[in-house]
Design a protein around this nucleic acid. Sequence first.
DNA 1: TTGTGTGCAAAAGCTTTGCATGTTG
DNA 2: CAACATGCAAAGCTTTTGCACACAA
Lengths: 159, 159
Amino acid sequence: MSHTSEALENIIAEVKTIFSAHLEKQKFRKTPERFTILEEIYRRTDHFDAEALYIHMKAQNYRVSRATVYNTLELLVNCDLVTKHQFGENTARYEKAYGYRQHDHIICVNCGKVLEFCDPRIQQIKDMMGDIMNFNVTHHSLNLYGTCKGECGSQASEN
Amino acid sequence: MSHTSEALENIIAEVKTIFSAHLEKQKFRKTPERFTILEEIYRRTDHFDAEALYIHMKAQNYRVSRATVYNTLELLVNCDLVTKHQFGENTARYEKAYGYRQHDHIICVNCGKVLEFCDPRIQQIKDMMGDIMNFNVTHHSLNLYGTCKGECGSQASEN
DNA sequence: TTGTGTGCAAAAGCTTTGCATGTTG
DNA sequence: CAACATGCAAAGCTTTTGCACACAA
């Protein structure tokens, strides 16, 4: 087993512990489906939608329903193990959140490619605006849209 | 006629001229429906969804269809007279764009209230990230989510 | 054992499409 | 008058809900 996949197994173990504690605290049940979905999400590296997750699990012969996928995604978003995005499409996209630095996204409107970036100024803006507008700012979403220069000619969606 | 509504009439005249030029340039037809929808949008002050616009026009006995509302909204977004947002819901929201300073949004997740703010650091981030990621950044979306302190107790949606 | 969670299928909600008709250029 | 835009209704997609059964506590 390579170093990186070993690290992944560790992360999966950690997030399962966190999820378990969260379920316990909220008096929700610890079902095998919930942990399986969590694990599937953490084995992905992309920005997926609920249907892609459902299809992928069905393809592996898991017995799971869309309802449970949506339900579990919401639970995971609530305990900050998964983040939910809207990249200007009609469908929500998700990605694992634990152990990954908070980041924002830059999206190519031609090919659908999604890249990630960090900028400390966002935190400053959140703090300042929460102060000015008298809001308790809990999270944010920053998406930059444009075209990747040169390398992209297609219309397909990626990542 | 008050000063402010006079200003509004002027803006409406201006945006109609802009839209007209855009349609001409793109070889699209200048139909009365398209201009009526544009005017309706510019008489609003909120962040509305397509259905609300459609309903409001039907209530005024305009003969218009959802298809035309969606089609025209897209045309108006394309020529920067209207901006389209996703405030973390499943429905897209729109607002007029011409003559209004570019701004971002802070959304109360309890009551749905939407406030607007400006911060010059966003432009700096766009420029820098476009440079670093080799993207031609054309637009962006920044939403801050949280709760408005004190004043909000309801669950309803506003603005 | 009790009630929450699940799978399945149907419903709901937003958006797009097909088709016949109307209207612009 | 030819092509495009429209209204209407139906279809498409994503997400939610209802119900009977399964299973965690």
